[in-house]
Amino acid sequence: NITYDSTPEDVKTWLQSKGFNPVTVNSLGVLNGAQLFSLNKDELRTVCPEGARVYSQIT
């Protein structure tokens, strides 16, 4: 699982392990844990089509 202390590499690995598509992995894999957790559902949806699914995994 990812935490606020996760590195971008951790986030990328976590996204891949959850089966998100490469677009999602590449879009969000540049963020660290704190940055990812700071995004709300609408912001995640704006960044990638699977944003709502990512949001449900981190809340």
Score class of each variant (00 low, 15 high):
Gln35Glu: 13
Pro8Ser: 14
Thr46Gln: 08
Ala52Lys: 11
Thr46Tyr: 07
Phe37Lys: 10
Thr59Gln: 09
Asn1Leu: 04
Cys48Trp: 03
Ser6Trp: 04
Ile2Arg: 00
Pro8Arg: 10
Thr46Phe: 08
Phe37Trp: 06
Ala52Asn: 06
Ser56Glu: 14
Val30Leu: 13
Leu31Arg: 05
Pro49Phe: 05
Thr7Leu: 05
Asp10Asn: 09
Lys12Ala: 11
Pro49Tyr: 05
Ser17Glu: 15
Gln16Glu: 13
Glu43Thr: 11
Arg53Lys: 14
Phe37Tyr: 09
Ser17Gly: 12
Lys41Ser: 10
Pro22Lys: 14
Arg45Asp: 14
Phe37Ser: 06
Gly29Asp: 04
Asn32Arg: 07
Cys48Val: 06
Lys12Tyr: 05
Val25Trp: 04
Val11Arg: 01
Val54Tyr: 01
Glu50Leu: 00
Arg53Asn: 07
Ala52Ser: 14
Asn26Ile: 08
Pro8Leu: 02
Cys48Asp: 06
Ser17Leu: 13
Glu43Asn: 09
Thr24Arg: 01
Ser27Leu: 09
Glu50Val: 00
Thr13Met: 11
Trp14Lys: 04
Ile58Thr: 05
Thr3Met: 08
Tyr4Val: 15
Thr46Lys: 14
Tyr4Trp: 12
Glu9Val: 10
Asn21Glu: 09
Ile2Cys: 03
Tyr4Gly: 07
Arg45Ser: 14
Asn26Cys: 03
Ser6Gln: 00
Gly51Leu: 02
Ile58Glu: 02
Lys12Cys: 09
Gly33Asn: 02
Ser38Tyr: 00
Ser38Phe: 04
Pro22His: 12
Phe37Ala: 08
Gln35Asn: 06
Ala52Pro: 12
Ser6Thr: 04
Asp10Pro: 01
Asp10His: 13
Glu43Cys: 05
Phe37Arg: 09
Cys48Ala: 07
Thr59Asp: 12
Trp14Asp: 05
Val25Lys: 04
Thr24Cys: 05
Arg45Pro: 06
Arg45Trp: 10
Cys48Glu: 06
Ser38Met: 13
Val23His: 15
Ile2Glu: 00
Pro8Ala: 14
Gln35Tyr: 00
Ile58Tyr: 01
Lys12Asn: 04
Arg45Glu: 15
Ser27Trp: 05
Leu36Gln: 02
Thr46Gly: 14
Tyr4Lys: 13
Phe37Gln: 07
Val54Gln: 03
Pro22Leu: 11
Ser38Asn: 14
Asp10Trp: 01
Asn26His: 06
Gln35Trp: 00
Gly29Met: 02
Pro49Glu: 14
Ala52Arg: 11
Leu36Lys: 03
Ile58Asn: 04
Gln57Ala: 15
Thr13Lys: 15
Tyr55Gly: 08
Glu50Ala: 01
Leu31Trp: 04
Tyr55Glu: 11
Ser17His: 15
Lys12Gly: 07
Thr13Ser: 12
Asn40Asp: 04
Cys48Leu: 06
Lys41His: 14
Ser56Tyr: 11
Asp10Ser: 08
Asn26Leu: 10
Ser17Gln: 15
Val23Arg: 10
Ser38Arg: 13
Leu36Pro: 02
Ser38Val: 04
Ser27Arg: 11
Asp42Thr: 08
Ser27Pro: 01
Glu50Asn: 02
Pro22Phe: 09
Ala34Arg: 14
Lys41Pro: 14
Val23Leu: 14
Thr13Ala: 14
Trp14Asn: 04
Pro22Gln: 14
Asn21Tyr: 11
Glu50Asp: 06
Asn26Pro: 00
Arg53His: 11
Gly29His: 00
Ile58Lys: 06
Pro22Val: 13
Trp14Pro: 04
Gln35Val: 04
Cys48Tyr: 05
Arg53Pro: 05
Tyr4Asp: 10
Ala52Trp: 06
Arg53Leu: 14
Asp10Leu: 06
Tyr4Ile: 15
Tyr4His: 04
Thr24Val: 07
Ser6Glu: 01
Leu36Glu: 03
Ser6Met: 03
Val30Ala: 11
Leu44Arg: 03
Leu28His: 02
Asn32Ile: 00
Asp10Ile: 05
Asp10Ala: 13
Leu36Thr: 02
